[in-house]
């Protein structure tokens, strides 16, 4: 009689059932995301208000520094504050995903050393948590648009596409950094630097239109450039989207995602031994 076994544990074996397992553990993914969200808003005193105060203050400072002091041009007729905020939304989503995700595995050491599940779930749920902050900030944007009496154009229908792009970019980069952070603990210091540095090389406080032509290619290699430009294009309707730059960004994003997932899966097996 042929013996049938459901689980075979061997070195390198986990590869084969990976995506199946990921599906099997989807409920765990929901519940971990739910836990992170719940705990996040339970623990801080001002809770959800934090998701409003942070972008609001950043926007005010950026509008003052870039718009009033440096007198940089806005995009078309859009108020400078609105332009900053439309860029700040995806940027803050990206930066908080990066920060949350990279610490997520270390924060869940007890789970990793005691229970089996595809580890991908943990950084993924950290990205989802950041998305809740994004949704709250988005509500603020809507209020601001009402306040400025600014009507979005028909292009707003494309917003979900750029939202997805923001997601993929955040997830891909986060995965790579998360895995590195388990192995090399110094990434804890590097990540805040990346986030801070990225804020200035991405068009958050300024418009992409002021970037000189000779720098465009290099500039487009920052995947957040297209995400932010796309957001502005959808929300403000003014800027014209650079399709060639979008294409470059998408290639870079895809590359990050593939490398991120591969590196994560390669190192994932030894997380329990290294963490």
């Amino acid at each position: 009689m042929k013996e049938e076994f459901d689980i075979i544990i061997e070195q390198g074996r986990s590869e084969r059932n990976y995506w199946k397992d990921l599906w099997r553990f989807r409920e765990l993914f929901y519940i971990l995301s739910w836990r992170d969200i719940k705990v996040r808003y339970k623990q801080t005193v001002i809770g959800a208000a934090w998701a409003i105060i942070r972008p609001l203050l950043t926007m005010i400072v950026f509008t003052f520094v870039f718009g009033k002091v440096a007198k940089l041009p806005s995009e078309g007729n859009a108020p400078y504050a609105l332009m900053v905020f439309a860029g700040l939304l995806p940027w803050q989503f990206f930066s908080s995903s990066l920060t949350e995700a990279s610490n997520s595995l270390i924060g869940n050491t007890n789970l990793i050393t005691k229970v089996y599940f595809p580890r991908l779930i943990i950084p993924a749920s950290a990205v989802i948590t950041s998305f809740v902050d994004f949704a709250i900030s988005f509500g603020l944007l809507v209020l601001m648009m009402i306040g400025y009496q600014y009507t979005p154009s028909w292009q707003i229908v494309f917003l979900p596409i750029f939202l997805l792009l923001a997601f993929v970019t955040s997830f891909g980069v986060s995965l790579y950094l998360t895995a590195l952070n388990v192995k090399y603990r110094d990434f804890r210091y590097i990540i805040p630097f990346i986030v801070q540095f990225g804020l200035y090389v991405s068009p958050v406080g300024f418009s992409s239109t002021i970037v000189p032509d000779q720098w465009r290619f290099l500039y487009a290699c920052n995947p957040m450039v297209s995400v932010i430009d796309g957001f502005r294009w959808c929300i403000l309707g003014e800027a014209n989207l650079q399709w060639d730059m979008l294409a470059i960004s998408m290639v870079v994003t895809a590359l990050f995602l593939v490398i991120g997932i591969r590196y994560f899966r390669k190192t994932e097996k030894s997380f329990a031994d290294n963490i």
């Binding site: 689980i7 544990i9 061997e10 070195q11 390198g12 074996r13 986990s14 990793i112 050393t113 005691k114 229970v115 089996y116 097996k269 030894s270 329990a272 031994d273």
Partner: peptide, 8 residues
């Protein structure tokens, strides 16, 4: 190893 937390 049995619980698949670490690989053999």
């Amino acid at each position: 190893v049995l619980s698949q937390i670490t690989e053999p």
